[in-house]
Design a protein around this nucleic acid. Structure first.
Length: 427
DNA sequence: GTTGCCGGGAT
DNA sequence: ATCCCGGCAAC
């Protein structure tokens, strides 16, 4: 089981969702909710550890950027309170991350603390309070060396038990993941993160999460002209791939973030609004080699819908070859992106129990039930919240189900399976 | 008949 | 934007 907790100030409602593959994303609205989130997470983690799954727990403490163009939440806890919350989180995380169940392969040197986002130019854009996130190049946003929040990651290291050398996420990285370094840090310039669509036979790669979201929405979900669609439950599946490029700093002006050998025309006649985007990413530093033990099947980014920005599409065929039983890949969400070393979960654990609907994922190009625009979507085969939880547990349903909308849970599952199939095929 | 969820209304 | 639900269509 993979468990991720994100603190996200601009998500309105607290969403705790079980994902396929026994993964979790846990979102909490406010910093003050962190403790609550941790409690939930812990409960969930225990619950699913009982189900014979392994877990790793990541907490991303959203970076607080103090600068003139960043909205800082008005009501802030005192540093002491924050400290306690974070300490609580740290202890929870420690208990999970040091659990014997938690295992992950060693982290390569260049993806250790120094190489991950803590060094990067990622900061929440100035619209952070509106639920809109984008990556800003360091040049057009607050100074990376802006005043740091009261706590530093070092404050929490004391609460972590020493991790076994080969057991679990690299310590530096872990602490980096768990306790977002409040101090904006620079990132190496030699890598760039792209976002690869995980839909079967797609593999489209865009330079921003927003772009890939729009791609998925328009191409795969058939949501043309629904840019205003934002029910807070819309899920996207894409994965982050890192490209070794030294020209990232150019931004998107040279949208060939691809290494030369990988360059090729876009695979999709995109419907995306092509718009040069200056606030784009300069990102992760880990090189994803074809033989790296990457495991997108273990973790997918489920992204709650937010406003997005379109970016020119870039296709990088073969640039994200993940090994089926891999273990390492990264996720990126909000700010800053997280480099994550996943758990090599056995294939059986990769599949949600009883996911018989996988069969359809091998049926062709339009694998996920792609619907002609204007037509009703075919009914899904996955278990809806209603069936899973029953009417008596309606409060456990996903929001969409409660509102009699298309079940996000099922959708996520389907997309996940398609993505897995596609990636396995690629490999 | 049951269930998923679209479309639209109420707030 | 959020929440709810009538009603259609797939099952």
């Amino acid at each position: 089981m993979t468990f991720h907790a994100f603190q996200q100030e601009d998500v309105k409602s607290d969403i705790s969702r079980k994902l396929p593959d026994q993964q979790f994303l846990l979102f909490t609205t406010k910093e003050e909710d962190l403790k609550t989130a941790e409690t939930k997470k812990l409960n969930r983690a225990h619950e699913y550890e009982k189900e014979n799954t392994r877990s790793v727990c990541l907490l991303e403490q959203k970076r607080k950027v103090v600068s003139s163009n960043i909205d800082v939440p008005p009501a802030r806890k005192s540093s002491e309170e924050l400290d306690m919350d974070k300490v609580t989180a740290a202890m929870v995380l420690t208990s999970l991350s040091t659990s014997p169940l938690v295992r992950s392969p060693p982290v390569r040197p260049n993806e250790s603390l120094n190489g991950s986002w803590k060094e990067g130019g990622f900061v929440p854009s100035s619209t952070s309070s509106s639920g809109y996130w984008s990556w800003n190049a360091p040049s057009d946003q607050s100074n990376p060396s802006t005043p740091s929040p009261p706590l530093s990651a070092d404050s929490f290291k004391a609460f972590r038990t020493p991790s076994q050398p080969d057991d679990g996420i690299d310590e530096g990285e872990t602490s980096n993941l768990l306790f977002d370094e409040p101090i904006p840090r620079k990132r190496k310039n030699s890598m760039k993160v792209m976002f690869k669509c995980l839909w079967k036979n797609c593999g489209k790669v865009l330079s921003t999460a927003a772009g890939i979201q729009k791609h998925i929405r328009t191409i795969h979900l058939g949501r043309v002209g629904e840019s205003d669609y934002s029910d807070g439950e819309e899920d996207f599946y894409y994965t982050e791939i890192r490209l070794n490029t030294d020209s990232v700093a150019d931004g998107l002006s040279s949208l060939s973030p691809v290494s030369p050998s990988l360059a090729s025309p876009p695979s999709f006649p995109t419907q995306d609004t092509i718009r040069p985007e200056t606030s784009c990413a300069k990102t992760e530093t880990k090189l994803m080699t074809p033989l790296s033990r990457s495991a997108p099947t273990n973790l997918y980014l489920v992204h709650t819908d937010h406003a997005y920005q379109a970016t020119p599409p870039v296709n990088i065929p073969g640039s994200a070859k993940f090994t089926p039983n891999g273990s390492s890949f990264s996720i990126s969400w909000q700010s800053p992106p997280v480099t994550f070393t996943g758990i090599p979960v056995s294939p059986t654990h990769n599949r949600p129990a009883g996911s018989g609907e996988q069969k359809q994922s091998h049926t062709g190009l339009s694998s996920p039930p792609r619907v002609a625009f204007g037509l009703r979507k075919p009914r899904g085969e996955g278990k809806k919240c209603r069936k899973v939880y029953g009417m008596e547990n309606r409060d456990m349903w996903c929001t969409a189900c409660r509102w009699k909308k298309a079940c996000q849970r099922r959708k996520a599952k389907l997309i996940l399976q398609e993505g897995q199939a596609a990636l396995l095929e690629d490999f």
